[in-house]
Simulated assay, not measured.
Amino acid sequence: MILASDDYGVQCSSTVNKFWLDITLLIENSANMGSYLRQLTLSLASELTQLSISQTGSFTSRVSIITYASQPKVVGNLNSYQSANEAASALLGLSVLSGDSNSDLASALQLAVNLTKPQSTLQRIPVIVVFAASNSGATNNLFYITQDFQQSFGSVITVNYSPSNSNLGHALNSTASQPEFQFNNDGNLYKNLIWAFSQVNCKCPWYEVQLIRYDNSTNRNIRYAECYRWKQTTLSSSQACSPGYPADFRTKDKETFIKKNLNLQNLWVVLKETPANLWISLHKGSTNNWVWYDINGSEIPLGSYTNWYNNSLTGSCAKTAQTNQWDWSTYQWVTGDCNNSDGQTNGAVCATQACDAEHFCVLDGAVPTN
């Protein structure tokens, strides 16, 4: 999974042979697609050979193909292709329906959702990629067609072959899972699709929050391979989050993201007006310096960002604590005994590794009780 680690955390991997997806290629083949269809199929046929396409194996993806004009047609379902070469051959056999200038995206999308939606918690992560040059159907129900699909951890990526077509743009905007998953047909298309697959391939269970950062250089959100939840516990720092680990607050932006998205300012409701003292991964390491735990258990230096409360720093483990019990939004770092022998720690901010082909987890399972 690990692509790179930066000051924010561990990024989701874009290594194509680590994808674990059920990919449905929803391809318009109306007369409006014209010569773009041949261009598209040649490109996809070549690019699919770089993916591990198979019906079996832990590091493989499956592919289905649907074409649509006035009516959608299943060229091959998720069980049809045993290899990338078989899927590529099917793509190269597609042709434009020259006498059909209609394109019913809604009907095609409904078929794709039915074909791709998860059948069980053990299935690969589902994704639909829409390649469109026009839309002659209604757009007001496109969002609702994919709503349940996306709530079941599915994602929709769109590729626009007619950017000047406002009706099509509105349709694809209603369809894509997020703005970052909308692309135009250009020289960066394959690179963008691989990036989108890397984001789709890396997800957190429903009861955890995935770390996301807005990248100003690319103007899009980037997902990280870290998932968060808070736990009410009086266990020691090393045991509180097992089998996960206490979260790190390496940067101010990361700390703010976790506090906001875990709604820590309202923990007083759960803790019955008791100020929250939650373990984080900051601790004194083997050299007696303050360090964080990384996703793989290694130690990371404290760095330049700190948020210490004015205390003596006598303990060996740190927690984020409400330093003013009357201000429920106030959290700063304080130290404590790692074993919680004083009983002052009543919770932990916990992190786990996101789900993908290298780290399987049940996305819609029950919340762990320990």
Rank of each mutant, 00 (worst) to 15 (best):
F131I: 09
P368T: 02
L211S: 06
V129R: 00
T352D: 10
L97E: 15
Y8L: 11
T146W: 04
V129A: 12
Q119C: 07
N160V: 02
S30W: 00
L262K: 13
G93E: 14
A366C: 08
V291F: 04
N296F: 09
G154T: 04
L278N: 08
S13H: 02
S329H: 11
R250C: 01
S312T: 14
T218N: 13
L48I: 11
T121Y: 07
E28Q: 13
L235D: 13
N219C: 00
N370W: 12
V74T: 11
E86A: 10
L92D: 12
K284C: 02
L105F: 06
P72I: 00
C241G: 03
G297S: 12
D294E: 12
A133P: 07
Q178I: 09
G244L: 06
K18A: 07
L25D: 03
L278I: 05
G93C: 09
L313C: 10
N185M: 09
L115N: 11
V270N: 15
N340G: 05
L211G: 01
S298Y: 06
C317D: 05
G154K: 08
T287C: 03
Q332Y: 07
S43C: 00
G343P: 05
K231D: 02
A106V: 05
S103C: 06
T345C: 05
A354K: 05
W268H: 15
C355L: 05
A196W: 03
H359T: 10
Q182N: 13
